[in-house]
Nucleic acid binder design. Structure first.
Lengths: 151, 151
DNA sequence: CAGCAGTGCGTATCCCCATGCCCGACACTT
DNA sequence: AAGTGTCGGGCATGGGGATACGCACTGCTG
């Protein structure tokens, strides 16, 4: 697993198509990239085993899951004792509303992405779960107004 | 498409499993959620057609694609004429390094997520593509130090 | 109480797909 | 020129899976 792999043009094309439709059948994929099924399957397997393709996921509409509102949060903490910081990290990471959680260089100390149902739910989350944490010094919520491009 | 859908517990479980493995076979999925294949398939179809499941994607290791470095950028612009702003949005959205691009309430005006190969590539991107844009007033790059949780 | 809608189940079938095997083409090495 | 590694192609086949169909159950509702 995870050998150094050099991707050629065909590999890239396989990746391209599997990224658009992860349920593509091998024969259909082969057709699209201009191969016959056997070598195509060999390549896909190789990509999977080498860790280039790490998995396949269904993409779910957040609104359908009651997660229609996304908020980006900058966090600053007391840079105090290690234990408090670790607790902070573990606690925040465990919140299911937290979709992304990173420690940053410089300021802010942490970057959090949260999805909730609506503004009321966000208010609840913020006051009930984030603000109260002992390590937290400052929270800054950033609300997206319009998504121009997304991955 | 996109009818109002109420998800019951089984739907949620289907979604849960398909999110972990988007290539799950219907019979395997049925087994996991405690149904037989036919009703399971009906549910999946319904979820797809109602827009709850919006697609299936292969997940690719960014490093393997020469996208090992991710940077978050806050952007402030001159809030001047509409045309300049629109050009800014179109231009940035077209950059392939840009993975996420949102207009925000308050400050910053825009939030950009970028993936590049390494620091050198980021420097090139920043000076060659972003800094030069006429609308740009201020750029603030934020470097992740450690990813604690990710979607 | 009698429909009716929703939903799960069992079954059967048919197709298509994954996959193993072997060959041939090419490029490079010695 | 022969050897060798890499890679695509052809082919055959076994098997699994998608899916149609009809039935049963349950809970509402008029």
């Amino acid at each position: 697993m995870s050998n150094e792999v050099a991707l050629d043009a065909v590999d890239r094309e396989i990746i391209f198509h599997l990224r658009q439709d992860g349920r593509l059948t091998n024969v259909e994929l082969a057709k699209r990239v201009g191969l016959t099924p056997p070598p195509c399957l060999r390549r896909v397997k190789r990509l999977e085993e080498s860790g280039v393709i790490t998995g396949y996921r269904a993409v779910i509409d957040p609104a359908a899951m009651g997660r229609g509102l996304e908020v980006l949060i900058d966090v600053e903490i007391y840079a105090n004792d290690r234990k408090t910081v670790e607790e902070f990290e573990d606690t925040v990471a465990a919140y299911e509303e937290v979709i992304e959680f990173r420690r940053m260089y410089g300021r802010p100390d942490y970057f959090i992405r949260v999805t909730v149902a609506d503004h009321a739910a966000y208010e609840t989350f913020l006051t009930g779960r984030l603000s109260g944490l002992p390590a937290v010094l400052r929270l800054e919520s950033h609300l997206p107004m319009k998504t121009i491009k997304t991955y």
